[in-house]
Amino acid sequence: MRNTRRALADFAEGPQSTDSPLYGAMTRAIMKSETLMRMVEKTPENQPVPLHLLAALQYLIGRTPEHALTGFYVEPEHRGSLDELQEAMEQFATSHQDEIELLLATRTVQTNETGRAGALVPGFCLIYERTRLPLATIEIGAAAGLLMGWPDFFYDYGNAGQLGSSSSLVKLQTEVRGPRTLPLPSDLPPYAERIGIDRSPLAVSDPDDADWLRALVWPEHPGRLERLNFAIETVANDPPYILQADAPDGLDSLLMQIDGATTRVIFHSIALYQSDRETWTRIDEVLLAASRSRPVFRLGLEFDAGQKGIDQPFLTLSVYERGGISKEVLAQVQYHGRWIEWLVG
């Protein structure tokens, strides 16, 4: 059972509050307000507090530019006091209560953060180095499939190297931290297929879906928003196939369809929290069964629930082979893909 007030306090006191001072202040305003607390309590159990409500507010602010709350978004240097912010939020939430509750009931936090591709790609490169077969990737929790466009992006890792076409609209800069060298080849690995699976996929061609994706970008992150818009444009030119299904139910058939002369790679990023333990156990069972014919690789960028005090996710490579599984932690990564620290080698 979620402790909503604890979740709010964790956000307000954590690195996210520094990363987005406005969201930190809005979270503190929610905690002071009975009206806003009643509203945030309507967040579904599998959705993050307070980001789900904050995304709903930002989505509606984009459609209500004349409201006083809008000024807190567009003029960060003139935000006023916490009491003024709380008052503006309460007024907006009260006047848009039905719309907010509808968004909380029908939308989910599907932050299709393309910056995370900068963390996933070194993992894809490592898998290809081991198998030397083109990658057939399946993304769990694909949302609009923006991360599935990873072969079309340009990657800049500073002194560690660059990958992809410099003419790409989507250019990712990922800082390499730590004492170990990030092992990069001279080019991106070849791929054979890009498939997604999501219980509620989004379509970049749908203006409402695209606006929801934009609402999930934090207010002080114009670079992320620009990159998102470029990714939407890039993926719209060649929309990926996304199967609408729960992952355990759809994975088996997708894996069976993949050509034998490829490497099967399942990947996901910041998706574990949206499903219960039983769902991920069933996914493991599907992958273990599929591995009896040939290996399946799984690349996950997720927070480690077993380590308290860890506020950034880890990139983990799991190899399913002959009905068994081995795991290796490859890197720690900033949750939006801003930096990577390689941990092996």
Score class of each variant (00 low, 15 high):
52 H>N: 12
310 I>M: 14
279 T>N: 11
6 R>Y: 09
257 Q>C: 08
160 A>S: 13
14 G>N: 00
301 L>M: 11
315 L>D: 03
263 T>A: 00
165 S>N: 15
181 T>E: 15
274 Q>W: 04
86 Q>A: 05
41 E>K: 01
281 T>S: 14
15 P>S: 14
322 R>N: 11
258 I>M: 14
66 E>H: 00
33 S>K: 05
144 A>W: 04
209 D>N: 09
82 L>I: 08
15 P>K: 05
51 L>V: 13
273 Y>T: 05
185 P>R: 07
194 R>E: 14
218 W>S: 02
188 L>K: 07
40 V>R: 01
190 P>W: 10
341 E>G: 01
151 P>L: 09
204 V>M: 06
235 V>G: 06
258 I>L: 12
214 R>Q: 11
26 M>H: 03
238 D>W: 00
105 A>T: 14
45 E>Q: 08
214 R>V: 09
45 E>N: 05
337 G>T: 08
247 A>D: 01
163 L>M: 06
2 R>T: 13
146 L>C: 06
71 G>F: 11
112 N>M: 05
158 G>D: 10
174 T>Y: 11
101 E>F: 01
183 P>Q: 11
101 E>C: 11
270 I>P: 07
9 A>M: 15
108 T>I: 12
200 S>G: 00
136 A>R: 06
335 Y>V: 13
45 E>S: 01
249 D>V: 03
89 M>V: 05
182 L>T: 09
278 E>H: 02
299 L>F: 08
145 G>W: 03
145 G>D: 15
49 V>R: 01
177 R>H: 13
116 R>M: 10
243 L>S: 07
140 I>T: 09
268 H>S: 10
150 W>P: 05
51 L>E: 14
127 I>M: 00
119 A>R: 00
279 T>Q: 13
327 K>T: 13
81 S>R: 06
51 L>F: 12
307 Q>W: 02
291 S>K: 04
299 L>Q: 02
49 V>F: 13
340 I>T: 13
216 L>Q: 12
266 I>T: 07
46 N>F: 05
133 L>K: 10
56 A>F: 06
299 L>K: 05
137 T>G: 01
117 A>E: 15
190 P>K: 08
252 D>Y: 10
65 P>F: 07
171 K>I: 03
254 L>A: 07
29 A>P: 03
206 D>A: 09
258 I>A: 02
306 G>Q: 12
334 Q>M: 04
10 D>F: 03
72 F>M: 12
69 L>Q: 02
4 T>N: 12
235 V>M: 13
159 N>I: 11
214 R>F: 04
331 A>C: 06
314 F>P: 03
78 H>M: 10
203 A>M: 11
304 D>Y: 04
181 T>P: 05
266 I>F: 03
254 L>N: 07
54 L>H: 04
310 I>D: 15
139 E>C: 05
88 A>V: 00
211 D>Q: 03
174 T>S: 13
183 P>V: 09
74 V>E: 15
